[in-house]
Design a protein around this nucleic acid. Structure first.
Lengths: 110, 110
DNA sequence: TTTGTATATTGCAATATTACGATTAATTAT
DNA sequence: ATAATTAATCGTAATATTGCAATATACAAA
């Protein structure tokens, strides 16, 4: 059916899954890495940097923007995208809480 | 086209995306949470715990197993799944490295 | 105004994912 | 042996995702 039954899960579970899903494509990872690397805004070099067509990059940017992880300003003829540090902190904190879980190992039978 | 062009990206980018993708569904988040919570093995209570059909759960378990994040032993008539702590540590370390990046803010123009 | 440049949107084809009923396989209990 | 139980697999329908060509939009420069 292709549709996820979000009503079966808690808000936290859905939120974590949404974050992970947004990070679940190498192009979006590459975009974020590039943004961190240049520590500045994107002004069009992404299409050259990553070898995908312009509409494809634009679509991936949109998804990251929808999650709130990046923000963009119009700057003349080009758009200026950068990491929203506040959102990034919130999102990574949430993910880290989940990732830092450990099995105590007491009932570990495998 | 629905196919991801993995050859355009580095191994690290593809690996990170694969991990995130595996975590990108609330059912799989819920499965992992349950495994951590009971700190033991699953012996069939997952289908009741999560409200999805048995084949669906089985499919999600398979994906987590493929990533190496959980492992399963046959234990009589039921299967015993649990977190593979070593793999979990490796995977979360990799993700954390990525997540802990920060923008220095120097070129932050948005 | 026209031309050029940069990004977004639309429309579409190919593939992937999600979910589940039906079935199968493997084991345990009777 | 037969029945019951548990989990995996198969087959299939519905929806989502990925990618790009074509087009639209918005602005700048000439």
């Amino acid at each position: 059916m292709g549709i996820t039954k979000t009503d079966k899960f808690t808000d936290e579970q859905n939120k974590l899954a949404n974050i992970a899903k947004a990070l679940g494509h190498p192009a979006r990872i590459a975009i974020l890495m590039h943004l961190f690397k240049i520590d500045s805004c994107i002004c069009g070099d992404l299409v050259n940097e990553i070898g995908l067509a312009q509409p494809t990059i634009s679509q991936h940017l949109k998804e990251l923007k929808n999650l709130g992880i990046i923000k963009g300003n119009i700057s003349g003829t080009s758009i200026c995208y950068c990491i929203d540090q506040d959102e990034w902190t919130q999102i990574t904190t949430l993910l880290n809480q989940f990732l830092s879980q450990k099995t105590e190992g007491a009932g570990n039978c495998c």
